[in-house]
């Protein structure tokens, strides 16, 4: 008998006209609390991953670095507390979208190395700007030489992918000139 009664009062709750709203609010509340909890667990790990990714990319260019500082979008590369170089990201408009290139420069502002981080170029054509056969050409260049060879510079464009090659070259040169000014001005 007791069981039937609880069943009845339960039915009453179900038929209350505010019940749908309260139920929905309750579900949203539970969802938010749950997500906050999961976010707290994963947040540390996510931040670690992002940090580790930046460091591993910088270490590809500066293998003997131990720390970096980020100022005005420029990574200042440190070893034993001394600056050994600078790094920054150059964004260029390619054939299929944005091409992001990480540029590492020495203290004398010559290029140490570049790596293409992300692109949406045509597979097999434009994506060849990510290969070392293209990016190695930048090693040791000063800003004045960072121009495609058909425009009088020292960088040979990838055959059949002039737009992608130009996007990388031009964006690297533009950011290089801009950031050298910033570094000089602030004496980083």
């Amino acid at each position: 008998m007791a069981r039937k009664e609880t069943g009845n009062s339960f039915n009453k709750i179900l038929q209350n006209k505010f019940y749908p709203i309260i139920f929905l609010a309750l579900i949203v509340f539970i969802a938010v609390v749950l997500l906050m909890y999961v976010n707290n667990i994963t947040r540390v790990k996510i931040l670690e991953q992002r940090e580790a990714k930046i460091i591993s990319q910088l270490k590809n260019i500066f293998p003997d670095m131990d720390k970096y500082e980020l100022k005005e979008n420029i990574y200042i590369i440190l070893k034993n507390g001394k600056t050994i170089g600078y790094s920054f990201i150059a964004k260029g408009k390619g054939y299929g979208g944005e091409i992001n290139t990480l540029v590492g420069i020495n203290k004398d502002f010559s290029i140490k190395e570049i790596t293409v981080l992300s692109n949406s170029e045509t597979p097999g054509l434009g994506t060849r700007v990510t290969l070392s056969s293209f990016t190695d050409q930048f090693k040791g260049l000063k800003s004045a030489d960072v121009v495609l060879s058909k425009d009088g510079g020292k960088v040979d464009a990838v055959t059949g992918a002039t737009i992608s090659s130009r996007a990388v070259t031009d964006s690297v040169k533009k950011e290089l000139d801009k950031n050298i000014e910033i570094i000089k001005k602030n004496n980083y």
Binding site: P20, F23, L24, I27, A31, L34, T42
Partner: peptide, 24 residues
Amino acid sequence: MVRIPVFIVVIASFVTILSLVFEA
């Protein structure tokens, strides 16, 4: 009456958990 919004909230919660776990 609120069936569909409830389903959407439940599904979106699981997707958010998935997204956080994948990112981490």
